[in-house]
Design a protein around this nucleic acid. Structure first.
Lengths: 345, 345
DNA sequence: CTGTTAGCGCTTTCAA
DNA sequence: TTGAAAGCGCTAACAG
């Protein structure tokens, strides 16, 4: 099970065996074949740990799931893991996963894998304003990809995120075509960059369609969506449609709409961000912006591998989304459906 | 950043430094303090890869998410990851995650981490009858914990799973108290051990309450639940309640109930397995059996660490569940609610 | 109490 | 075309 074993059996030096297995052309064809055959026979698989020590690299990509408190959409992080892994499988790389709640322990988690040389690079999700993880990684010059948002500050960063302008353009256009004139955005209270970026893009898109953007902040989970929607509904001149920056807020908002006796897609249209299964299977199903999370994660991993190998290749930072239209959006109250459809054309 | 550096600065041997840092009491107190101080000063963190090579262990626990096709409940696997990690954090262990669809590539994923000595043990979820992963791990004698089900065969196995008898007892008792006399179980077509175990326990519990158990097989996802429920509803003497072996089947079943114009919790009661967020936020919310996945995963990791260290400690194989009662269950049609409640007492 | 030696399994000089 | 030697950073065995 080691090079030595093969070397002994064949009466060769470990060096030669190593080179033969690595496919070096400066090893005699015959020797190479013999070594290969013997390796196959005993089922040789190189010891990755030894290889890593020798090469000084770890051949591991790290990913820290933020928040044990299930404060976010479930499927999103699994998608990142599966996307990352689908790029890694077939390579010698491993995927290391940790989990840490926001707070002091969070940076500790990153220190651990960086300082212990456990990983060659990390994917950092859920970027926040003044993000201590980013500050740390920048300070030690460790390779990372900001996932789903762009850190503020002047340091050059590689990020992989959705094109919010395109995404919100899709959403607002869809609502405008249905005749909505007063629309709101349910945003996150915490300074998450993705929420901020989506809110900004919402404002821009609304203005492009001649509408005054409304905002209602809340926590990022179902309760946040619930409360924000309740406040929206209580308004004098309440909007006829809302866009929630996460699926979970959207699900909460939907519940409040139903509990208020309003009909989703008629009295109040709703669009969410993420398109996790939960919004596809709600009653009614929710129109949602679909994020190509898996492909984005694949690309993020690709970038990290390139970074480690010193390869410079173009990076695709902005990704387009799609709008999955479902029953939670419909003509604005007082709008003739036919008119709306005509408007859409 | 290495022991050598500290040794040089302090004029000590590497060995002494290593021992001092490890806290060996046969190093002079003064020396220990000096080494500690110097280590802190330069921010020494041991190189994990070197440590692993030397010790012959990898200090990594592996977990392979089965199925890229999102064929199952989302939160379940994140719970396993977070549970496993919460036990691992604070130790020197890492958590390695892969993903593989069922099929030939699946065993290859396990071979990869076992043969490359990338992990010290693995958690194997979603055990199937005649499971090739289990066969492989047994054949090479590699430490693993079967998670959520017990493999068949004679080999001794450590498994961590729920007590299906207890769980289904809870569910069936709840339905019986509501006056239901004809109940069905939506099971999985594929030979998953957990589905089989739940079905068996369902039969036993139903018989204990003097009921004839009905079964309706389907795929484990929403569509499977949909179709199974549709067939159930189409029956001449249709049951008044159903238990689905997964949340996703349950969600599909709920949709079919609604689409058929039946009222969940009145015309048809429904209980699911898992208690993922999706069933808490559906309309109506679904009564569900809650699985303590995180704690179970913590324990699985504990077992694997013990296994590696040759420690023998009692293993908790069977875990109790709770029933989260929600609006999808109610009195059987034709039953007086008061009678039902009296029956429950 | 401290140091020397050896070795984990691999790859990379340098030499033959 | 092959081999010997060195070393990645750490720990364990054995002396002193």
């Amino acid at each position: 099970m080691s090079l030595r074993l093969i070397a002994q059996t064949l009466g060769l030096s470990i060096t030669t065996v190593s080179r033969a297995l690595a496919g070096y052309s400066d090893v005699a064809q015959l020797t190479r074949d013999r070594v290969r055959a013997e390796a196959d026979r005993i089922g040789y698989v190189p010891n990755e740990v030894a290889r890593r020590l020798q090469s000084g690299r770890s051949d591991v990509i790290g990913f820290v799931i933020p928040d044990q408190a299930r404060g976010f959409d479930d499927r999103y992080f699994l998608n990142i893991i599966e996307g990352a892994w689908s790029r890694l499988s077939g390579t010698e790389f491993d995927l290391l996963v940790m989990s840490a709640p926001e707070g002091p322990g969070e940076v500790a988690a990153y220190r651990r894998i960086v300082e212990g040389r456990r990983v060659d690079g990390v994917i950092v999700p859920r970027i926040r304003a003044d993000d201590p993880r980013i500050a740390y990684l920048n300070s030690v010059g460790f390779p990372y990809v900001a996932f789903g948002g762009r850190p503020d500050g002047d340091d050059p960063v590689v990020s992989v995120e959705i094109d919010c302008g395109q995404a919100l353009g899709l959403a607002v256009e869809h609502l405008a075509a249905f005749g909505h004139r007063r629309i709101a955005c349910l945003t996150a209270e915490k300074p998450y960059r993705f929420s901020q970026a989506r809110a900004d893009a919402f404002a821009a898109a609304a203005q492009r369609f001649g509408m005054e953007p409304l905002f209602m902040p809340g926590s990022l989970d179902e309760d946040g969506g619930r409360l924000a929607m309740a406040r929206l509904i209580a308004q004098d001149d309440r909007p006829t449609a809302a866009v929630a920056v996460t699926d979970r807020m959207g699900v909460g908002a939907l519940q409040t709409i139903l509990e208020s006796g309003l009909v989703p897609g008629r009295d109040m249209s709703l669009i969410t961000f993420g398109d996790n299964p939960v919004v596809q299977f709600s009653n009614p199903p929710i129109t949602a912006i679909r994020i190509p999370t898996q492909q984005m994660a694949e690309h993020a991993v690709e970038i990290l591998i390139d970074l480690r190998d010193g390869i410079r290749r173009p990076v695709k930072e902005l990704w387009d989304t799609e709008l999955a239209v479902r029953a939670s959006t419909g003509p604005a109250p007082g709008t003739d459906a036919t008119t709306a459809l005509a408007g859409a054309a």
